[in-house]
Design a protein around this nucleic acid. Sequence first.
RNA 1: CGGGGUGUAGUACAGUUGGUAGUAUGCCUGGUUUGGGACCAGGAGGUCGUCGGUUCGAGUCCGGCCACCCCGACCA
Length: 491
Amino acid sequence: MAKDFPTRAENYAQWYNDLVIKANMAENSAVRGCMVIKPYGYAIWEKMQAALDKMFKDTGHENAYFPLFIPKSFFSKEASHVEGFAKECAVVTHYRLKNDPNGKGVIVDETAKLDEELIVRPTSETVIWDIYRTWIQSYRDLPLLINQWANVVRWEMRTRLFLRTTEFLWQEGHTAHATSQEAVAETEQMLNVYADFVENFMAVPVLKGIKSPNERFAGAVETYCIETIMQDGKALQAGTSHYLGQNFAKAFDVKFLSKENKLEYVWGTSWGVSTRLIGALIMAHSDDNGLVLPPKLAPTQVVIIPIWKTDEQLAAISVKVNEIKKNLQARGISVKYDDRDTYKPGWKFNEYEFKGVPIRLVIGPRDFENGTVEVSRRDTLEKATYQLQDIETKVEHLLQSIQDNLFQKALDYRESMTTKADSWEEFVDLLDNKGGFILAHWDGTPETEQEIKEKTKATIRCIPLDVKPEEGKCILSGKPSANRVVFARSY
RNA sequence: CGGGGUGUAGUACAGUUGGUAGUAUGCCUGGUUUGGGACCAGGAGGUCGUCGGUUCGAGUCCGGCCACCCCGACCA
């Protein structure tokens, strides 16, 4: 199954594509740009959902569900929002089909035209703020902290499995607050939740920052983001959190009476991460042998493979393994015991390595005699023989060690791929020959940012939250700059 | 929308000057195997993307259409 796919060095894009398909995570569907998420890929999404959902609830949010369809008129109420999304909206115009009178299948029934066309949501701000108007009257109704797990559709010109698909799954948080300060604090809190998740569960280090005006969410006052770096040196935006100010409150007339009995517009935020995270997870850690999954998100954390010659041997080994399995499960570790006799051990080793299972335990007749087990870790491909005694604790520690090692490796890589550029020549050279995050001075104007993008395809990924003041000159215009910003070519 | 490519068995591909379709892998059955992708034997599986044309005869030649993939343009 893992045979015949290119290495990262040979063809990174093809490596990624083949990995997704051959590891049974997803495949293309009949509709261009839409993917089928297969059980193994979906299991990772479920793990992500479970972790994030808990974090959202721990910070006081509740889940709800808003409709897929948005009346076209809602969409145009916030000017920059509609401008940002108009080019990629799917539109429902009719609600009925009929048999083709010429006998060629079915056709749209023109008599069933909708009075008002419906937009398939590319994001739900409009439909949600329209409802918030009716939910919010008083400061006592605030803050309103809602999240929804949903699918959205954005008609992208070019798609890639997980990274950019026409339809994708995500969560979108939408909150309303009595003050600007509170809304900003919420925006920052959720950015930190995302950073925490991506670093501690996905084992991918993030750079927290704010977007330049060009890259800002359509309708936001400020967009915060977490940026990650992939093994090919390209940046990938892993999540965004938006401070919406009163933009949507004004567009949808959402007001509340304050303690002082004054009628005021509420302050909003929205924030989201999507199935794109699965793409990031794959590209951050996987190698030329296949997937490498961090233990905290791996659908199966430990696979146990028996080796035997006789039925008696298998029976004896299975008794032992089932005991180990039970003890591991008692500690919350997901275990798969693969005692199929339809595949040979070697085949299974390759299979689970390709699928990125963090730890493999092998027990054969020799181990059974000696009270040992062979332990292999996916991240380093190292093998060792352990005594069976208290194997649960050893496995638990090893899982943590793999999780830590993956993060450290990714962090070291990011450090090595973060470079300062002080001249245009240096900047272009770094982009073409090294990639990664490039710290450079920018004069702060959208025109300069645009020109850099046109010349190099690099964009400002963010202005880091912890940016240090540093006098310098813009690498393009030479005008004065107060600090460096982060440039990269990105997904 | 531009540039490039591909449509033939579940999958990946081959198919010569036009003569009625093959290889690998996977699948099924039986047996031998099992500490890094096992072996032997037998077997099932294809309106060759689609529509039309040329021809005694088209996977192959000609034309139209469709779909998908890759690279761009586009993209919070």
